[in-house]
Amino acid sequence: MTAAASPKLALHAVTQRFGETLALSPTDLAVRAGEFVSVVGPSGCGKSTMFNIIAGVLQPSGGRVLIDGRDVTGRAGEVGYMLQKDLLLPWRTVLDNIVLGALLKGKAGPKERAEGVALARRYGLGDFINHYPSALSGGMRQRAALMRTLAMHRDVLLLDEPFGALDSQTRFAMQQWLLSVWEREQRTIVFVTHDIDEAVFLSDRVVVMSPRPGRIREIIEVPIPRPRPVSALTSPLFSTIKQRIIDLIYENSPALEPAHV
């Protein structure tokens, strides 16, 4: 494993049982500080279970989750997370939604709000600070949701298919935008998706999972140099990596035709 001696985020033998079913068999994973790791796999592979355990909203049946070596198993609020649904509060302005973390604790003072405004300006929502979410497009709403996550000041960001509901053009624009945010903010990102192109384009490593029982099948390195231009998507290296992932995912289900993926 390429992770350094003390990884930012580590899973040690994390296991989840729901009654008789083993949703996630004992799993180990180490993510370096500042690394971008994607998790792909068919439904039922345990990636959502793993997401919820890392987010701390689900207590695993066994194993430990460590951040900087600290045990944070089953503790919510240690990582920033974001879902496919933007979960913006309709009755709050974009700015109030960005500083929601401070607002909930009654600490949204001028300093926090100014910081929220700076985030909004830096990442393309400067003209919508005082708007309500209903006035925003799907892509803009997801930007606001990511800024809310950034404003939480957590080193580890957990994103669960954040662009899954967007059309493909917006989605591609958002992927490039996310990379620019990540390069500037120096956070560690764990990104769950079932879009293999998205996983390869964004990540340093892709964790491929498989179902019954849910487990990590293999971890694939993506040695495409950064910053990655759009042309990276059609390079031979990209295709080789993508093919390898497809093989891993569909190896056990010959009924599916890989060419259509």
């Binding site: 987010a55 909203v57 609020g77 997370y81 979960l87 973390g101 909930l104 939480m152």
Partner: peptide, 22 residues
Amino acid sequence: DKDIINLVRSMGASRFSIFRHV
């Protein structure tokens, strides 16, 4: 939405804060 409740809880919101803001 249960996911909103989960989210604000993970952001450290108290029961009262969840009631007041969500």
